[in-house]
Amino acid sequence: GSMAFEWVSFIGNPLIALVLSICFAYWSLGLRRGLGMGDLLNLTHRCFPPLAGILLVIGAGGAFNDMLVGSGIGKVLADVLGQSNINPIILAWLIAGLMHFAVGSATVAMISTAGMVLPILGQNPQYSPEILVIAIGAGAIGWTHVTDSAFWVVKEYLGISLSEALKKFTGATVLASVAALVFTLILSRFV
């Protein structure tokens, strides 16, 4: 109830924080360096078109995630895969990869997968929770494609075609994910 808490709550509001950061960026990177308001307007007009598509994809990915969570498909997937005889490390990696592929957000995939893997961890206490967390992270970094904002950032800022981004960037994330899984399996032998 203090005044300091009220100010921190106000400044911490995502919209207020975004407006303050934009104002600071205009001042520190533009006005302070001698650019005029016309120059800042021209820079802004050049920067927004690539960002508009990225923001649209991010918003669509968030809406898709809400549909997946609301439909309960995550719980059904966890129940079905939890009854299989797959190694829990590989299972955590696989669920995280599938969630990232479907949702397009590695963060959302990791959080969703953690909730799905928790019951499996109770059934397999011999596996370290830390190893499963690493496996989830390894799975969530792979399969970056058109539903992921990182994909569009890389595509737009490198100026490459969609097919080239799918071949190179998606391929690289899949390779990194598989390599991380292999190292996680090796690490699980020691931890």
Rank of each mutant, 00 (worst) to 15 (best):
156 E>V: 13
13 N>L: 09
20 L>H: 11
58 I>Y: 12
118 L>V: 00
67 M>F: 15
148 D>C: 11
150 A>D: 07
100 H>D: 10
186 I>Y: 09
170 T>G: 03
25 A>G: 06
130 E>G: 13
69 V>E: 07
70 G>Q: 08
155 K>N: 11
137 G>S: 09
79 D>G: 03
8 V>E: 10
177 S>C: 13
6 E>N: 07
52 A>H: 14
102 A>P: 11
184 T>W: 04
78 A>E: 13
129 P>V: 04
74 G>F: 00
77 L>V: 15
178 V>H: 14
38 G>V: 03
93 W>E: 00
156 E>S: 13
8 V>L: 09
5 F>A: 10
132 L>K: 05
52 A>E: 06
179 A>R: 10
128 S>W: 03
74 G>H: 01
69 V>Q: 02
9 S>P: 06
25 A>S: 15
136 I>N: 04
167 K>W: 08
129 P>E: 07
2 S>N: 04
143 W>I: 02
148 D>R: 10
103 V>T: 01
169 F>Y: 11
172 A>Q: 07
40 L>M: 12
18 L>G: 13
183 F>R: 04
79 D>P: 09
156 E>F: 08
78 A>H: 02
25 A>Y: 08
2 S>L: 11
84 S>K: 01
35 L>N: 12
63 A>P: 01
155 K>Q: 13
171 G>M: 04
1 G>L: 15
34 G>M: 00
82 G>F: 00
122 G>P: 13
29 L>P: 04
104 G>W: 01
54 I>E: 05
186 I>M: 06
138 A>T: 06
105 S>G: 01
100 H>N: 14
17 A>W: 04
25 A>F: 06
76 V>W: 15
129 P>K: 10
72 G>F: 02
52 A>L: 10
3 M>H: 11
117 V>L: 11
67 M>T: 14
116 M>K: 11
183 F>C: 06
22 I>K: 03
188 S>R: 04
23 C>D: 13
54 I>W: 12
32 R>E: 03
35 L>G: 03
110 M>S: 15
63 A>I: 11
181 L>F: 08
106 A>F: 01
45 H>P: 02
40 L>T: 10
114 A>H: 04
90 I>E: 07
189 R>P: 04
138 A>P: 04
165 A>H: 09
48 F>D: 12
110 M>A: 15
41 L>C: 06
51 L>I: 08
124 N>A: 03
137 G>W: 03
116 M>Q: 13
13 N>V: 09
106 A>E: 12
57 V>G: 07
123 Q>R: 11
59 G>Y: 13
123 Q>K: 07
152 W>C: 02
13 N>G: 09
120 I>S: 09
106 A>H: 05
163 S>H: 12
90 I>N: 11
16 I>Q: 10
68 L>A: 02
170 T>K: 14
74 G>Q: 08
111 I>M: 04
191 V>T: 13
151 F>M: 01
2 S>D: 05
7 W>H: 05
191 V>F: 15
180 A>C: 08
2 S>Y: 07
22 I>L: 15
24 F>P: 07
25 A>C: 14
127 Y>A: 00
153 V>G: 02
131 I>H: 08
39 D>A: 15
